[in-house]
Amino acid sequence: MCWQLQEAKNKLSEVIQAAQKSGPQAITVRGRETAVILSAEDYRRLTMKSGSLVSFFQASPWAEVELDLTRSKDVGRDIEL
């Protein structure tokens, strides 16, 4: 649901309950979404670390692809200045 800032301020308890029951609640200022109220559970789930970057890449379907990482011996071209 979307709440105007003034309404959200007046009904903060209701906004928090809605976030716990129905999910994130957007707050608008002059018709533009500017903030979101989350339940503590949703926040923990979003910010929880779920492994290392190395394990993420190891689990990738591209982990077995061989890449040619050798550097080119080309020195470039001569340019007259």
Rank of each mutant, 00 (worst) to 15 (best):
K11D: 07
T28L: 08
K11M: 05
E14M: 06
E66R: 11
L46T: 01
F57C: 11
A40H: 10
L38S: 01
G23F: 10
E33C: 05
S60D: 14
S60Y: 09
K11Y: 02
K73N: 12
S50N: 15
I37N: 01
S39M: 06
A35N: 08
K21T: 11
K9V: 07
C2K: 12
R32V: 05
S72Y: 04
E33A: 07
G51E: 12
W3M: 05
T34K: 04
Y43M: 11
M48K: 15
G23L: 06
T47Y: 05
A59L: 08
S55P: 02
D42V: 06
A59Y: 04
A8H: 03
G23V: 06
D74I: 04
W62A: 12
K9S: 03
T47P: 07
R71T: 14
S39Y: 01
R45G: 06
D68F: 05
Q17P: 00
E41Y: 07
K11R: 15
Y43V: 03
I27V: 07
A19L: 05
T34D: 00
L69E: 12
K9A: 08
G31T: 05
E33G: 03
E7V: 06
V54M: 11
A26K: 07
D68W: 03
Y43Q: 08
S52E: 12
Q4L: 09
A26W: 03
A35L: 04
P61F: 07
R30A: 08
A26C: 06
E14N: 07
S50L: 13
D42T: 13
S72D: 15
I27Y: 02
D74E: 14
V54A: 14
P61I: 11
E64P: 09
V15M: 04
Q6P: 00
G31V: 01
K49L: 15
